[in-house]
């Protein structure tokens, strides 16, 4: 039997912690937190292995290859940090456990299919919106940027609007 995982921390306390990390990021780096940028840069490197000419001539990707690797970017290092910090926290709380989270109404196949499709939509959309829930909603929101607030309300609208259609995936 695995040892019992410790409970999650209070959401308001966690929010204060996250908010202070964001302040630190602005004060030290002069840029907010972000996650989707690193994922897009990793995708460029992987796609470059498959179709180097097409990727390096692509208008969106080519600037990332201009001065070396797309991975030579602060957001990539930040994402590596997120992996390490997340792992440290999960490990110390007894929450590292291989598995697939899904509702009773969804098979493993269905759940992973939705994870892939949902990921594709989120990846596409975060490029379109120039950021995700970290870079736009959280980081831009704290600077009161108009587009970040528009993005944030749109995310909630999209998720609430689609929830009914995927209810079986998450059914208790």
């Amino acid at each position: 039997m695995q040892r019992q995982a410790t409970p999650f921390w209070n959401p308001y306390l966690s929010g204060i912690g996250l908010g202070l990390v964001l302040v630190l990021s602005y004060v030290v780096l002069g840029a907010g937190l972000g996650a989707s940028g690193a994922i897009a840069r990793t995708s460029a490197v992987l796609a470059d292995r498959v179709a180097p000419v097409a990727v390096e001539q692509n208008a969106y990707f080519s600037p990332w290859f201009a001065d070396g690797s797309p991975l030579a970017h602060y957001l990539v290092f930040m994402a590596v940090g997120v992996l390490l910090g997340g792992f440290g926290s999960a490990l110390s709380a007894g929450r590292v456990a291989p598995g697939i989270e899904r509702g009773a109404g969804a098979s493993v196949f269905v759940r992973l299919g939705f994870a892939l499709g949902g990921g594709a939509l989120a990846g596409f959309a975060s490029r379109m919106a120039q950021g995700c829930t970290s870079g736009q909603a959280l980081s831009g929101g704290a600077l009161l940027l108009s587009g970040s607030w528009a993005f944030m309300f749109a995310v909630f609208a999209g998720a609430f609007g689609a929830a009914w259609f995927v209810r079986k995936e998450w059914q208790a």
Partner: peptide
């Protein structure tokens, strides 16, 4: 982008930053 992202979030179960934490937790 926000609307599409929201659909991807609830269908996929993650957003980019939290998915990194999910991977670190073994998901």
């Amino acid at each position: 982008g926000g609307l599409v992202f929201g659909v991807g979030f609830v269908a996929g179960g993650w957003c980019p930053g939290t998915a990194l934490v999910g991977v670190a937790s073994g998901k």
